[in-house]
Structure formats: C-alpha cells, structure tokens
Simulated scan of single mutants.
Amino acid sequence: MFEERLKQKLAVQKEQGLYRNPPEVSEGDGRTVKVAGRTLINFASNDYIGLGRSETLRKAASDAFMRYGTSSSSSRLVSGNASVICEAERAYADYFGYEDALFFPSGYQANLAILSTLFGPDEMLLFDKHVHASTVKGMQLGSAPFRGYRHNSMSHLEKRIKGATGNPVVVTESLFSMDGDTPPLADLARLKRTHGFRTVVDEAHAYGALGEGGRGIARGVADVALGTFGKAMGLFGAFVLLPSLYREYLLNFASPLIYTTALPEAHAVTALAVLSEVEQADAQRARLAHLSRRLTHLLTDRGFTVCGEAHILAVQIGSEERAHGLVKKLFDQGYFAFTARFPTVPMGQAIIRLSLTANHTEEDLEGFSDTLYRLMG
C-alpha cells in the first residue's frame, strides 16, 4: 500500500503537468550548461555577476580548504564556533550596515530559524503572499500567528497591521524570486514610521547584484535581513544580518542552527574574499542591469507579457502543460530555461522564469527571444 500510494501521487503529478525530473548537468560556467553532451545557453542560473566561476574565488577557496580542512566536524555550539567564522560574520555585518551577523548552512535553514524562533504568540507575522517556501515553512513551525497580504499591496498590508492581534512583524522580500519584482520600499518605510512594526526582508536575490556595492536595496526598512552565498555571492551557505540581541537568542534557541554541523572554517575565509569581489563588481552589476533591460524589451516587443524589475524575469504562459512543453522545445533549440509551476506559483499561472548573468551576450538574448517567439507561433 505504501509504495502504491507513492506511485499514484507521482502519476497524478504527470497527468497535471507537474512532474519534476531535472536533467543531469555535467558541466557549467554560469552562462552555459552541458546536458547529455550538448552545450546550452543557460537562463536558469543564479550566478548573477559571474562570481560562481571566478578564478580569484576558486584560488581563495582552494587555499582556504588546504589550510583549514574540509569540515568543522562539530555543531556551532560545541566546538564549531571558530574564531575565523566570527571574524567573517563581523565583516559581513559591517559591510551591509547591521549590528551583527550569523552564518547558516543554507538559506532554507536560515529562514526556518528566523521565523520559527524569534517570534512568538505576542507577535503577528504579516507576510507577502509571494514569499519563499522556506519562509512559509518557518512560520508554520513557529508559535506566532500569521496572516498574508496581497503581493506588494501596501494598502492591504496597512489594513492587516490595523487588524493585527499582536505586535506586527512584516515579512517580505526585496527582489521576489519568481516574480522578479520589488515591493514599494519607500511606502513600506512610511508605514513602518507610522505604525512602528519590525520587518524581516529576504534579500537573497538582491545581495551582490543590486544596490551600492551589492548591498541590496532594503537596508532602510529591514530589521533582519537574509542573504545567501549561493546566488550572486558565488559560494554556498547563507547569512542573516540582525541586532546582536537577536543573534544571541538564535544561538540559544534556534534548532536549525543548534542541531546541525557548522560550516567549515575554510568557508568563512572564502566568504571574506567574496566581500572584496562583490565590492569591486560595479561593472558586472551595470552590465547585468543593461542585459536585463535589453531582454525585457526584446520579449515585450514580440508581444510577451513579462514581469520583473531586475535580473529575474517572468514570462507569463498560464497552462502548466504548455509552459513545460515550451521549455522542452527551448531545450531542443539550445536554451536551458526553467518553468515555475504549481505549487511554486498559483495553478494556471505557470511562467518561464529567466535569470540573467553578467556573462550573457547580446546574441544570447536575441537568439532566445527569437526562438521563443517562433515556438509560440
């Protein structure tokens, strides 16, 4: 019966066009991937400014792992609280303009820790309905009540604030991972001044790629901010920027941090090198912005509905089956793209999600837009 239940659920996934079977990638450089011996232009990478294949960072990581070894071999609260990790956390806090920082093995774990640990029955979490799945799971695991508000709607958020049964905490993203858009941060700041709530902002897709020096775009409103190393920062793991009191509390009570092996010391050393690369990447950020605008214009000129204000673009398709079919045809034409389907997006609102890197060329964009237009015809 157990195996039969699994088979039945997988069969339903296939019938609904929701089945996942990711291709095996043998090589990749951010701009391209090799699948089944074919090199494809990659529009599904989060290596936004090209640091994931940086020779400088490769050398820094290699030297760090040779010196410090490959594992911390302990949780953070036993013998894994290495001085170099603490040093790197202080450097990240200083660079991004926060009081303190805390490293995590993944962004998913970081969101679980923040939302399930910091807030309790005296608070009410008010979240944008398009936040990441890890944010939703963190709220579900915690003891604070939570309510959603319409995506990027400050009027609906204010209504929720006025009706909150506890101290409101607003939870949002600075650059939404599927929609590619940003909240009206000036309006959010105004609401924050008026109502005095706390704010948690996921800047995973903004850090490194947006803002002065890659510092993101939400420092003016975020009390707690989450960043990941595995996107524009070119590494792996995650970091949370926050007040020192919050850091102390998470170290004492956050299960996703307490009961897991700490990141190795070599990671922290490499993370320090990442900061230097990010600070010097103004040219890459400018090119990324240019390419993003260019692809948006190419697609909209061909009649596509495109959402996105930066390097993540969502091409509206609708049908799950049609979106999946288009991605398969794009693959055959030499382009690797990702279709976001239910439950990642609402049923019947499937998109082709495109993410750009500074290493893409104008020819890549023109070829992709021409091909997608032809396939839709």
Results as ranks from 00 to 15, higher is better:
residue 45 S to Y: 03
residue 355 S to K: 14
residue 182 T to F: 04
residue 197 F to P: 01
residue 218 A to T: 06
residue 20 R to H: 14
residue 187 D to Y: 12
residue 132 H to W: 02
residue 102 L to N: 01
residue 291 L to D: 00
residue 36 A to T: 08
residue 135 T to C: 10
residue 189 A to P: 08
residue 21 N to D: 15
residue 156 H to W: 09
residue 280 Q to N: 14
residue 28 G to C: 06
residue 359 N to Y: 01
residue 138 G to T: 06
residue 219 R to V: 05
residue 30 G to Q: 06
residue 253 F to C: 08
residue 264 P to H: 09
residue 194 T to G: 08
residue 144 A to F: 04
residue 310 A to C: 07
residue 132 H to A: 13
residue 346 P to T: 08
residue 323 A to R: 07
residue 85 I to H: 03
residue 274 V to P: 00
residue 265 E to Q: 10
residue 55 E to L: 11
residue 220 G to L: 15
residue 182 T to Y: 07
residue 320 E to M: 11
residue 127 F to Y: 14
residue 64 A to N: 06
residue 258 I to D: 03
residue 293 R to N: 12
residue 204 A to Y: 02
residue 269 V to H: 05
residue 53 R to H: 07
residue 261 T to E: 15
residue 13 Q to L: 15
residue 149 Y to G: 07
residue 65 F to E: 09
residue 91 A to T: 05
residue 265 E to L: 07
residue 157 L to T: 13
residue 38 R to H: 08
residue 278 V to Q: 03
residue 316 Q to S: 02
residue 339 T to G: 09
residue 116 S to E: 03
residue 233 M to P: 01
residue 137 K to M: 15
residue 59 K to I: 14
residue 374 R to V: 06
residue 121 P to T: 10
residue 299 L to F: 05
residue 167 N to L: 11
residue 134 S to G: 00
residue 341 R to D: 01
residue 343 P to I: 13
residue 25 V to G: 00
residue 137 K to G: 00
residue 124 M to T: 14
residue 243 P to A: 15
residue 264 P to D: 04
residue 14 K to A: 12
residue 78 V to T: 08
residue 92 Y to I: 02
residue 330 L to Q: 09
residue 301 D to L: 03
residue 253 F to S: 03
residue 237 G to Y: 09
residue 182 T to W: 04
residue 68 Y to H: 13
residue 195 H to F: 11
residue 67 R to T: 11
residue 243 P to Q: 06
residue 249 Y to R: 13
residue 57 L to Y: 09
residue 225 A to R: 05
residue 267 H to V: 11
residue 199 T to P: 05
residue 5 R to E: 14
residue 310 A to Q: 01
residue 299 L to Y: 01
residue 43 F to H: 00
residue 179 D to R: 14
residue 147 R to E: 14
residue 347 M to Y: 14
residue 316 Q to D: 00
residue 119 F to W: 10
residue 136 V to N: 02
residue 374 R to W: 07
residue 334 G to Y: 01
residue 58 R to P: 02
residue 263 L to Q: 07
residue 15 E to M: 15
residue 42 N to T: 05
residue 232 A to Q: 07
residue 87 E to G: 02
residue 307 C to G: 10
residue 113 A to I: 04
residue 291 L to E: 08
residue 127 F to M: 12
residue 220 G to I: 11
residue 130 H to C: 08
residue 299 L to D: 00
residue 159 K to R: 15
residue 176 F to T: 12
residue 368 F to D: 11
residue 168 P to Y: 09
residue 66 M to L: 12
residue 156 H to R: 11
residue 369 S to V: 01
residue 48 Y to I: 01
residue 245 L to G: 10
residue 65 F to I: 09
residue 178 M to F: 14
residue 196 G to D: 02
residue 293 R to T: 06
residue 114 I to M: 05
residue 112 L to P: 05
residue 246 Y to E: 15
residue 285 R to F: 00
residue 314 A to G: 08
residue 262 A to G: 10
residue 315 V to W: 10
residue 65 F to L: 09
residue 146 F to I: 05
residue 353 R to K: 14
residue 293 R to S: 10
residue 193 R to W: 15
residue 219 R to C: 04
residue 219 R to H: 11
residue 95 Y to G: 11
residue 325 G to E: 06
residue 256 P to I: 09
